[in-house]
Design a protein around this nucleic acid. Structure first.
Ligand SMILES: [Mn+2]
Ligand SMILES: [Mn+2]
Ligand SMILES: [Zn+2]
Ligand SMILES: [Zn+2]
Lengths: 133, 133
DNA sequence: TTCTTATTGAGAACTCATCTCAATATAGGC
DNA sequence: GCCTATATTGAGATGAGTTCTCAATAAGAA
């Protein structure tokens, strides 16, 4: 149990690498990026840093259709969802009260409690569809 | 490339096992269930049957928060989403035009194409929350 | 029945992720 | 600044879920 949090250059490197990109990336992509930039950070540490940053809501985390977890640095403190480009990972943050209300109403109507929801959209962004022609 | 589809007792066993349950199950759960019922079906075959049935929209498939794929037999031919019990897998089928329209509008607004969406809700059903007290 | 070939199943292989544990480095107390 | 307790690291092992390999089997057309 980590009672005290220490600051390490590894955690900071992960934070910076994430902040410098508007795209969702996997832990392995991020590790490769850091390594190719000369960093000697370990893969396990990248996984730990991402999990920790996600825990304190500094980064968003979602599951790709392929089943791997993708991360992106998050400024907004508000609850939101994403529209993500399948090819470059670029994402748009979305807020939708109507969807939030719908989920709450549906859960209540069917007697479900402790309900969480997943609302993600995956497509091809304008730039990627332009460059693929 | 499977040009011709053959009917095997294995595929039929998977179909029946799915049809007999209102809950989402994993491939391994389904395999265990079949084995304990006396069937000698192989695990790889269960995986293949589920993928094939999902491909032809005979079963619904979704990714659990834990990262495994869950399957459930699907009668309705319409596009829909699910409210799933985390503890027993029981699911309610949901249709929501407002959500469908919102996703389409948002995708268009941001210039994304080929957009698919994931809308799942996970909670505790009334029965499960009653029996856990 | 015969023959072609789609399908099966045991186990290997693969991917993503977490765990182990000895070595290291941080931060607080002096 | 130095010491010390311990949080953190990283290489490799391990685990979970899924797919692949390939020889054996069996479905279905002729
Ligand atoms: Mn929401
Ligand atoms: Mn929908
Ligand atoms: Zn793109
Ligand atoms: Zn339940």
């Amino acid at each position: 149990m980590a009672l005290i949090k220490r600051n390490t250059w590894q955690r900071e490197a992960v934070r910076k690498a994430l902040a410098s990109s508007p795209s969702f990336v996997s832990a392995q992509q991020l590790h490769a990026k850091l390594e190719s930039a000369g960093s000697a950070i370990g893969l396990a540490t990248v996984y730990r840093a991402l999990a920790s940053l996600a825990e304190m809501n500094e980064v968003d985390c979602l599951n790709s259709p392929e089943g791997e977890q993708l991360y992106r640095s998050c400024a907004s403190g508000h609850h939101h969802h994403h529209l993500i480009c399948r090819s470059c990972g670029k994402a748009v943050e979305l807020e939708a009260d109507t969807v939030e209300k719908w989920t709450a109403a549906v859960a209540k109507q069917h007697g479900f409690t402790e309900v969480s929801h997943v609302v993600d959209m995956f497509g091809t962004c304008a730039e990627c569809s332009a460059s693929s022609e």
